[in-house]
Amino acid sequence: MAEFHDLAELALNREGQSWGNLGYWQSETEYSDACRAIALLLGEQAGLDRQSVVFDAGFGCGDQLLLWLEHFRVARVRGANLSRIQTAYARTKLAKAGFSAAATAIVQGDINDPEVWRATLDRNKPSHVLALDCAYHFPDRVAFIALAHKNLAPAGRLALTDFMLSDQHRTGSFTHRLLRWMLKRSHIAEANIVRRDLYLSQLQEAGFGEVRIVDISEHVMPGFARFIRTFRGSGKLGGSGPLKYAVTGRFLQWAHRRSILRYCLISATKTGR
C-alpha cells in the first residue's frame, strides 16, 4: 500500500538533495535552498551546538539530520519517522555521508507511541526535540508535546515549525468548512490546528516555559505557492505530483491571503524534572 509520506519531493530538489518541507523564501528561489533555510532557522532557534543531543521527530529523508550533524556539529542524533520508505532512504543517506551510528539510531514508527520513544532513546534523554514542518501531521500534537516533555533532559528544548489558526478566522463559517475539508484531504487532524493562545496554553500545561512563537507565514506560505506554480510550468513533475503540489500550493496561498492560517517558528524550555 502506498504511503502518504513518500519520496515525491525528490522531484522538487536539485540532484543529491531530498528535502521535504515548505521552505523559507525570504531570499531563496530554489526549493532545496529554501528548505535548508528553514531548517537553519529551526536549529538556531533551538540553540543547537556541539553538546546537543537531538531527537528529530519526523526527519523525512534525512537532509535535516545531516544539517544538524554537519552544520551545527551536534553530538548525537536520534529520531523517529512514520514513513518506511523515507526512513530507509534517510538511513542510506546518513551511512553514505559517514554517519553510520546516526543511521542506526533512527527508526520508523508513530511519534505518538511511547514505545517508539523508549526504544529509540534507551533511557538517554536528549537535550533537544525538533519537529521541522511535520507536527501538524502527527495523530495528536498535544500528546507529542507531552511525550517531548517527558523524554527531554532537564531544561531541554523543544523547537518546531507548525501551523496555527489565525485569530481573525471565524469558526463555523463557510470558509472554515472548506478548511476542515482541506485538512482532512491533507491528513491533518483538525484538533492540531488551534489559535496561538491555545497553542501557548498547551505548551505551558505540558510543563514548558520560556515559550517563543515567531510568525514566519509571509516567508513560507506564499513563497511555496509561487515556487510550485513556476515548477509545474516546467513540466518536471510526473505521476500524481503535479496535482498534489498544485492543490497544496493553492491551498496555502488561499489560507494566507484570507488570514486563515499562520505558520510559526516555536521554541520552549522544559521546566521541572
Rank of each mutant, 00 (worst) to 15 (best):
P139I: 12
L40D: 07
E15K: 15
A191T: 15
K150F: 01
V116L: 00
G223S: 09
H187W: 06
K125Y: 08
A189T: 12
N13L: 06
R84P: 01
V220R: 03
S127L: 09
H71Y: 08
Y31N: 13
F251V: 08
D133F: 04
I216E: 10
F251A: 12
L203A: 13
T269C: 12
S259V: 04
G47M: 14
D56F: 11
R195P: 00
R157Q: 09
H187A: 11
R195D: 04
A148M: 00
T104C: 15
L152Y: 01
D140H: 14
V129I: 15
V211E: 02
H176T: 09
L82S: 14
A225S: 13
P154Q: 02
V211R: 03
V116K: 06
G47R: 07
V211W: 04
S259G: 08
F208V: 00
W19N: 13
F251W: 14
G98P: 04
R91H: 11
C134H: 06
S234F: 05
F227L: 09
S127D: 06
A105T: 00
A146V: 04
G209F: 12
H149K: 10
R177N: 09
W25D: 14
I216A: 12
V116T: 15
A11C: 05
L203E: 14
I38V: 15
F251D: 06
I260R: 08
R50F: 07
L165A: 09
R141Y: 11
I38G: 01
L252A: 01
G47F: 12
